[in-house]
Amino acid sequence: NRRKTITPGPGEHPLQYNYTFWYSRRTPSRPANTQSYEQNIRQIGTVASVEQFWKLYSHLVRPGDLTGHSDFHLFKEGIKPMWEDEANKSGGKWIIRLRKGLASRFWENIILAMLGEQFMVGEEVCGVVVSIRFQEDILSIWNKTASDQVTTSRIRDTLRRVLNLPPNTIMEYKTHNDSLKDNSSFRNTKITL
């Protein structure tokens, strides 16, 4: 590993974990297989403190201003935002579909909840994703163990609180195994109220 270790600077507030920003954009001509996904995803940078986070985040385009089929990912350092990663392969994600215009605000709020360790599920959270699509935008939070219902319920309840979701918001959980099987992140999800 030739990348240098990222640590908090003097006077900065350390985060519980280091996090890495990633960006991906699907080129319409290519099929969405694993290989092309890995080719289309780029690391933006890693942060170890609250201040380093703001410095990097403030330079990024707001997700609501992105066009086309693109995603921002913020994952714990060392975890690739891919279903096949060791930390993700037994995991899954909560999905919240957002109407256009809400993505930037919800993205910031879910990030702040993750960086501030608001979910209280130990090591379970892997990262968060905002997916910009044509009709709607989608927010997801990935965790390590899809079968751990105590963890997934706690993540769902924390999401409702930190995002201030209306009680009737539909939240869907999809295991990465199911995503691999149907080669889709958001299709055929089980609806949970």
């Binding site: 600077g9 006077g11 900065e12 507030h13 350390p14 985060l15 519980q16 609250v50 201040e51 703001w54 410095k55 403030s58 709020n109 702040l112 909840a113 960086l115 501030g116 360790e117 608001q118 930190v162």
Partner: peptide, 21 residues
């Protein structure tokens, strides 16, 4: 071990710190 927990307000306040620019 101890966890480093920050609430939303604290994190937003840090945004205006000179270190965050």
């Amino acid at each position: 071990g101890t966890r480093i927990i920050y609430d939303r307000k604290f994190l937003l306040d840090c945004r205006s710190s000179p270190l965050a620019h």
